[in-house]
Amino acid sequence: MASDPHAELMKRIGQGDKQALAQLYRALEKAVFRFIQSKLNDPFESADVLHDVFIEVWRSASKFEGRSKVQTWIMGIAYRKSIDVHRKRGRVSVTDDIPETADDTPDAETCLTAGQEAEHVRYCIETLGEDHRSAITLAFFQDMAYAEIAKVVGVPEGTVKTRIYHAKKLLMRCLSGRVQRGAVA
């Protein structure tokens, strides 16, 4: 595995170094918050979960064995805590791996135009189910490889590929539809 830029910080945190924790927080806070926010869609609740995630990092740092990147490990904690919040809300997590109903391949040219509009992209990502949204967020915002995404969400790599495949199709269809319907950005 390529050298992990945060591995040394984790080692220090495991030894009780609070400054190292602050450094790690500053390095990853935005990315972790963004991911949680993509799942919960509530900035206040997301801030609480972010806090809980880093508290757990503080408590568990000494147990981190370096089998994955530090960021992947932390995203995994964030993912599980977000799922817990969903459960407390009473939302049952339904898998999003639903087959396509029609093969109406969207026009890539139109998608490219819509893909450049933040409003369209935000809207279409929000229409995705949880699993698809997580996969797309981790791939496009966190720039994670599918193997890393699999570790974060605790599923086989093949499942990640399937989710990404469907998420991508739904996203493209949504973007294309927005442009064709002339939705106001």
């Binding site: 935005k30 963004r34 972010l50 890539a108 998608c111 490219l112 893909g115 509009e117 990502i125 496009f140």
Partner: peptide
Amino acid sequence: AELEALKAVRATIQAEESYSP
């Protein structure tokens, strides 16, 4: 063409301002 669209989506997502704590 699909790859270009995906790159555009990625760039848009990354450019989104995020108000973290």
